[in-house]
Design a binder for these strands. Structure first.
Length: 587
RNA sequence: GUCCCUGUAGCUCAGUGGAUAGAGCGCUGGCCUCCGGAGCCAGAAGCGGCAGUUCGAGUCUGCCCAGGGACGCCA
């Protein structure tokens, strides 16, 4: 929020350097560390080192300290600041706390739910995420792509981008054929009623088990595959109908999780278009057709004249001429840019195991001369595993079903709400329980570096204490409770005279950082920064809550604090919304 | 064998090349006459190893060790 002040000081230091015949400095600004001191800081070590490199004989540490002193003297006390000091080579500029605090609070209250968001950039970005397989269960392992992608989309939106949210369900493939076979032979005529994806998954698991126990059944499955391949109307109709069951089930999940999509691409839509791209690659000698003895391949390293094994070889078509994942991905990338020609970036939130695959696909498209190829970017994330590094696999049934997790978390949260707040109507208690349970699940998926494994265990997943969403929600509820009891909104101007305590300054400071946290997290395509910052904010508010009574305080502190609580409540709400977490009115 | 990711407190994780490396869980001991104790306060405990770059390295580079993953017809 203080870019303008920072820029002014920055340019004045440049003036100072020019006057002193010093090299052009590169200044890095950051917040002054250590709580209770609110302001911005930069150091002079780089400048001193630059002088040393230019031949001047200086001790860098000493010289930096000296330069900081000189700069401090040159600046005096700029408007808006109450103190300037040089410490061990650092130049610290302390804000005029009361003025700035009021400015921050005023901005938050004026901008309301938009506080933190950046102006429209007029740039469009697509985020593809979730891509669940139809005819399989939706388990906790699928949660990370869904939630990470959703929050990245929210972050980019808040950072000023126009975001297209895309889903790419795997609606065809061997797993679907196996499912259809098992359905036809064992479950014909049945249909799911509740827990759709779980039911779909159970048929798939049964299919895998049957096949494992009786490998000779493979021929039956091949027969179904042939019928599919020949577009047998009965099979096509069954595929469409059962696929829709899965999609309905996903819709239920997404609604519950608060996730939405603007566009759906289907695996099955990309087969023919992909084969068309492959034909082009062959005709332009970019791909080698080794059929019928081998597949169609693109020898990437060879085409790039590279001797390393960086890109290796991409198989783009099976030897029997059928499409595989890579075939479809070539077409999908193209389709996205045809639908949205102005995409500045096309992002793929897909697990890290497919990193090489995406590098290969994007590089192939680049070699094929697609001008947008370098606008495609893979956002890798690590898996959610079970304790002992056991990957969740539908086929083996080693999964924690999303339905089960949500049910269990919600019922635990409900039990807690009922002891804490027995007078609330059951309906409200249930809403609160849902908000707490889903918030906790979301936060745990997002408060971790993308490239780190999340190990799922029930104890951690169902722990509502400590660094978790309920802590943040609780801070919000407390703020809300104070304001409810205060009645009126309070004065609309910061009362003069009262100075702010350290605790209050820390809180305002954290509030003021929100826009920058959004910017940084969006640039890094990672929600972690916002997730951590939000927890810090809640922590600062709890500290304030304990140290600074609001309702019983004398004026002008009472009014000041009420305003601060309002601003905090708004910022907590905005931060939670950015992570897709509901802020309940009571808990 | 080639490449990618990860090693920070007992455990799970933060940490923008800069000042004093921070949280949570767990453990120990405190705090409801006080705006809601899903909370607060206090305590113990840490950068895998060796070189290098730099005025300055948990952070960058190289090598080593340990764990995970990817490497021509799975997705």
């Amino acid at each position: 929020m203080f870019e303008q002040e920072q820029q002014e000081i920055d340019s004045r230091i440049r003036e100072f350097c020019a006057e002193q015949n010093l090299p052009e400095p590169t200044l890095q600004w950051s917040w002054i560390p250590f709580s209770g001191h609110w302001g911005i800081t930069t150091s002079f070590f780089q400048l001193a080192a630059q002088e040393a490199r230019l031949g001047k004989k200086v001790n860098v540490l000493q010289r930096a300290a000296e330069l900081a002193e000189l700069a401090a003297a040159y600046l005096g006390i700029p408007t808006g600041f109450e103190r300037v000091e040089a410490v061990k080579g650092y130049l610290n500029l302390y804000f005029d706390s009361t003025d700035y605090a009021w400015r921050v609070i005023e901005a938050v209250l004026q901008e309301g739910e938009n506080f933190g968001c950046h102006p429209r950039l007029k740039k469009r970005v697509m985020v593809e995420f979730s891509h669940p397989n139809t005819h399989k269960a939706f388990h906790v392992g699928h949660l990370r792509s869904a939630i990470l992608g959703d929050v990245v989309a929210r972050l980019l939106q808040a950072a000023g981008y126009d975001v297209v949210r895309a889903n790419y369900p795997g609606d065809i493939g061997l797993h679907v054929i196996k499912w259809l076979w098992n359905y036809l032979t064992r479950h014909a005529g049945e249909r799911p009623t509740r827990d759709i994806t779980q039911w779909m998954g159970s048929i798939y698991i049964e299919a895998s088990r049957r096949l494992e126990e009786n490998p000779e059944l493979e021929s039956e499955i091949r027969a179904v595959y042939t019928r599919w391949d020949q577009r047998d109307p009965e099979i096509i109709r069954l595929w469409q109908e059962t696929r829709q069951w899965s999609l309905d089930g996903f819709k239920e999940m997404y609604d519950m999780l608060g996730i939405s999509f603007d566009v759906y691409y289907f695996n099955s839509m990309m087969e023919d278009a992909g084969k068309e791209v492959v034909r082009e690659l062959i005709s332009r000698n970019l791909a080698q057709d080794e059929r019928p003895d081998g597949p169609v391949i693109v020898k990437l390293d060879e085409l790039l004249g590279s001797k390393s094994e960086k890109y290796r070889v991409l198989v783009v078509l099976r030897s029997d001429g059928t499409a595989l994942y890579a075939t479809e991905d070539l077409a999908l990338a193209e389709r996205k840019f045809r639908d949205y020609p102005d995409l500045e970036r096309s992002l793929y939130v897909v697990d890290v195991r497919q990193s090489l695959h995406f590098q290969q696909v994007f590089k192939t498209l680049e070699i094929a001369g697609r001008p947008w190829a370098n606008r495609c970017q893979h956002i890798p994330y690590e898996l959610v595993t079970l304790p002992g590094s056991v990957a969740m696999a539908s086929r083996e049934g080693t999964v924690v079903l999303l339905e089960d997790l949500i049910r269990e978390a919600t019922s635990r949260a409900l039990a807690i709400v009922q002891t804490k707040n027995p007078d609330l109507p059951l309906e409200v208690q249930e809403d609160v329980a849902k908000a707490v349970a889903l918030g906790a699940i979301r936060y745990s998926m997002v408060a971790r570096e993308n490239t780190k494994v999340v190990t799922f265990d029930w104890e951690t997943a169902l722990n509502f204490e400590g660094q978790a969403a309920p802590y943040i929600q609780y801070a919000y509820v407390r703020a809300n409770s104070i304001l409810r009891k205060a009645g009126s909104a309070g004065p609309d101007k910061m009362p003069s005279g009262g100075s702010l305590s350290e605790t209050e300054i820390v809180l305002v400071d954290l509030i003021s950082r929100f826009p920058r946290e959004i910017e940084r997290s969006a640039a890094e395509l990672s929600p972690l920064g916002v997730a951590n910052w939000l927890f810090d904010l809640a922590q600062a508010f709890n500290d304030f809550y304990n140290k600074c009574p609001v309702l019983t305080a004398d004026e002008p502190a009472r009014s000041t604090r009420l305003q601060l609580v309002m601003a905090t409540r708004q910022t907590l709400a905005n931060g939670l919304a950015l992570l897709g977490i509901t802020a309940p009115q009571a808990m």
